[in-house]
Design a protein around this nucleic acid. Structure first.
Length: 575
RNA sequence: GCGCCCGUAGCUCAACCGGAUAGAGCACCAGCCUUCUAAGCUGGGGGUUAAUGGUUCGAGUCCAUUCGGGCGUGCCA
């Protein structure tokens, strides 16, 4: 419908002799202003310094439209053009929903385009904690949205499988292992002390007893495998499956993270050894060739001041025996190489999701990628603010250091998968979120999840009733709909809301803001509940109306279900 | 100190390139179950959109300043 009106408006502009414009059509807040409205005349008035109402009149006089679809068009207020859409359109759309079913709302706008969405990407140093939840649930919904607007989506998980943090994990497990038979062993402050560390240690002890396995690498690899499995398990509960797990080490020669600072100086060494094909080395070549890096204090720095940053940043650390620091890249360099890797894979859209604690670093990374000579216009970054947890009035402390962490598994167990998903996606990503665990747990009308799911369950109740008591209604076909019988306000309003779904999906997807779908579904549920309250669906004395209303119910159920699929919650048949 | 994000009803939050009387849920008040699930429906009270100034036909939205909150500001990621 929006496309149709946009087209006829542009045709009218052409007749007047104006360029076609990007036309904004929105649903007016007030019903009396029609179904769709445009401020086109107002913005043209600004441009040409004319009276907006005169322009609006001129446009309408030149507008040709299908009277079967649009009842009337009016000028209102300062110069808004309001369209009143015919009920016929909504009735036709009812058929469309019932025919398209789970496809209703999907668009092929980005047919043949590919998108890569990278998220979660927590390093496998332990289980996911509750704070990760927002990031994870948001990414899940956005990935779904991209598919709904036609992208072929690759879901990717990037993690550091070596380096400082992982070596701490290895040391922690080693300490845990030794502690089993030597009570003198203590954990250092900077070590991981969670229950899972002990579990890994015990597993290893069962396998090797006191025959200490050799090498640092052993502990790290065991830890990585175990922790990644914990993470995947949690993701599976949330019905998330990544297509690619990308290891940082795969960007290095021999998958080893050490880059010798001297070797960078004589970077051709890598070429001689035929090791110059890895992402990190290639990038270093590019930086060196473009004279973007320099050596200072035995570390390598990337020139960033030119990009508006306060300081240049270290990309390869110096050796420092005192602090046990090795000559390895900082996170920036592999992150840049990783993004270049994604660019080279040729996606039409590359999406990163970060918490606000990374909002500075992604700029550095993009700057580096751009400086190295790559186009970054396909890369979009979504930043979400942090989340705090509370139980009623009491706030829940999130401590990484202690072993008393509130894990994502705990949260899911406390409030359920649906409430977890819903609460994290419910709010705009760029506001700080207060997650009320008590409220999410609540099985009453206070809990906003239920308002939506209840509408779906209610419809299922009607369908069950039809099946059991009115078998001859149940087999009603789309062709049995008698449009003449759709006449109450509640019915029409419900159909109007349902017709908006495809447009809502589009705008939601193009801004990557899944909470808008929830706002929309709320209005679907609201209209359905009112319809339900005022309009008896199954009535033995009026078979035709019953059949028709059953089809309306089916359509509402479908739209709710499709919306639930996008945000990733279930559609319960009973509650 | 500097950078990014945020500040909307008692609470949690919406508001689509700047548009018409700023909207929901919860909480509060008053009604509605002999009828497909009352986890619902109907009505009501509640606002100087943190403050001040500016831009314009029009500002919650853009600009400036101030106040308040979050996150960053490592050779951690």
């Amino acid at each position: 419908m929006i496309n149709y009106i946009t087209d006829i408006l542009n045709a009218a502009l052409k007749k007047i002799g104006l360029e076609s414009k990007e036309i904004i059509l929105e649903k007016p807040k007030e019903e009396k202003f029609g179904d769709l409205s445009t401020n086109l005349a107002l913005s043209l008035a600004k441009e040409f310094k004319k009276n907006p109402r005169d322009i609006a009149k001129e446009i309408i006089d030149n507008l040709e439209f299908d009277k079967n679809l649009i009842d009337k068009i009016e000028i209102a207020g300062a110069g808004f053009i309001n369209f009143y859409i015919s009920d016929n359109f909504y009735k036709d759309n009812l058929k469309l929903i019932l025919q398209k079913k789970s496809e209703y709302g999907k668009s092929d706008l980005n047919k043949n385009k590919t998108a890569n969405i990278e998220w979660v990407s927590a390093n496998p140093t332990g289980p996911l904690h509750a704070g990760h939840g927002r990031h994870i649930c948001l990414g899940k919904a956005i990935a779904n949205l991209l598919e709904w607007i036609g992208y072929k989506v690759t879901r990717e998980y990037y993690y550091n499988d070596a380096g400082y943090q992982m070596s701490i994990l290895g040391q922690s497990i080693e300490s845990g292992y030794k502690q089993i038979f030597d009570s003198r062993i203590q954990f250092r402050d900077d070590m991981y002390k969670g229950e899972y560390v002990k579990k890994i240690a015990e597993e290893i002890y069962e396998e090797y007893k006191r025959n200490l396995p050799p090498g640092d690498d052993f502990w790290i690899k065991r830890g990585e495998k175990y922790c990644l499995n914990l993470i995947k398990k949690t993701l599976k509960i949330l019905k998330i499956k990544h297509d690619i797990f990308f290891k940082e080490s795969s960007l290095y020669p021999y998958n080893i993270l050490i880059i010798n600072t001297e070797d960078v100086e004589n970077i051709d060494i890598y070429k001689k050894k035929k090791l110059s094909s890895s992402g990190i080395i290639k990038l270093l070549y590019e930086f060196k060739t473009k004279n973007l890096i320099y050596k200072k204090d035995n570390a390598w720095w990337l020139k960033m001041k030119s990009g508006g940053f306060q300081d240049d940043k270290v990309i390869i650390k110096s050796d420092d025996i005192a602090t046990n620091r090795r000559s390895e890249p900082t996170y920036r360099l592999p992150d840049m190489a990783y993004h270049i890797d994604k660019i080279n894979r040729g996606y039409d859209l590359i999406l990163d999701i970060f918490g606000s604690d990374h909002s500075d670093t992604y700029k550095e990374v993009l700057f580096g990628v751009k400086s190295a000579g790559y186009a970054i216009s396909n890369i979009k970054v979504i930043i979400h603010q942090m989340v705090t947890f509370k139980k009623g009035e009491e706030s829940v402390k999130m401590s990484k250091r202690s072993d008393d962490v509130y894990y994502l598994d705990d949260l899911i167990e406390d409030v359920g998968v649906d409430a977890t998903q819903f609460f994290f996606v419910m709010r705009s990503a760029n506001t700080q979120l207060d997650f009320d665990i008590e409220l999410a747990k609540d099985k009453s009308e206070k809990n906003p999840v239920y308002y939506l799911q209840y509408a779906h369950a209610r419809i299922c109740g009607i369908l069950r009733n039809a099946e059991e008591n009115f078998p001859d209604y149940e087999d009603a076909k789309i062709d049995d709909i008698n449009f003449e019988l759709i006449k109450t306000d509640d019915e029409i309003k419900l159909l109007k809301v349902l017709s908006r779904f495809p447009d809502e999906v589009l705008t939601t997807a193009s801004t990557y803001e899944p909470h808008k779908i929830i706002t929309y579904l709320n209005s679907v549920a609201e209209c359905f509940h009112r319809f339900y309250h005022n309009n008896r669906v199954l009535n033995p004395d009026d078979k035709e109306t019953s059949k028709t209303r059953l089809q309306i119910c089916l359509a509402a159920k479908q739209v709710l279900k499709n919306g639930f699929d996008i945000i990733g919650i279930s559609a319960p048949e009973r509650m």
